[in-house]
Amino acid sequence: MKKLVTLVAATAILAGTAATAQDYKKEIKARQGLMQVIALNLGTLGAMAKGQMEYDAAVATAAGESLQGVSMVHFASLFPEGSDGGMIDGTTAKDTIAGDVDGFNAKWEAFGLAATKAATEAGNGQEAVGPILGALGATCSDCHKSFRIPQ
């Protein structure tokens, strides 16, 4: 029993050390990757809204569904305490995320609602895309305003 406790303790220490040594590289990579997926799909919708790309209902719907898919990731879990831009380089996450998980989740849910609307309505025609982007963009900047360090 004593051996087991020692082993667990040692493992815990090792795991803790490992997390520090990695500087949350995996979490940062994952959350920045999700942001990239969002940006790419917004780019598709944006190009159609601006008339730079011909409107295609199937492509627009796919972009909306991808956004909805991203919104289903439990995003706050990718921002453990200590993985913010105040502690480490290469991220602009604020330390307030870990301190206000409920507030952060509320903003992520707002994005989820807008993304769900995008998935169901982006196929309704070119004129539907602008307002969808407007609603999505409001949730982006609202969250960035609170939880991202200005660049």
Binding site: L40, G43, L133, G137, S141, H144, K145, P150
Partner: peptide, 30 residues
């Protein structure tokens, strides 16, 4: 066109979005 679109929606050409105090500005210019 990129600048005008940014002032309307807050989206940069790379579809990053305005944050910080500029998010307030875009809420007005929009």
């Amino acid at each position: 066109q990129d600048i005008a679109y940014y002032l309307e929606t807050g989206f940069t050409p790379d579809f990053d979005s305005a944050g910080g105090h500029m998010a307030n500005v875009v809420a007005n210019t929009g």
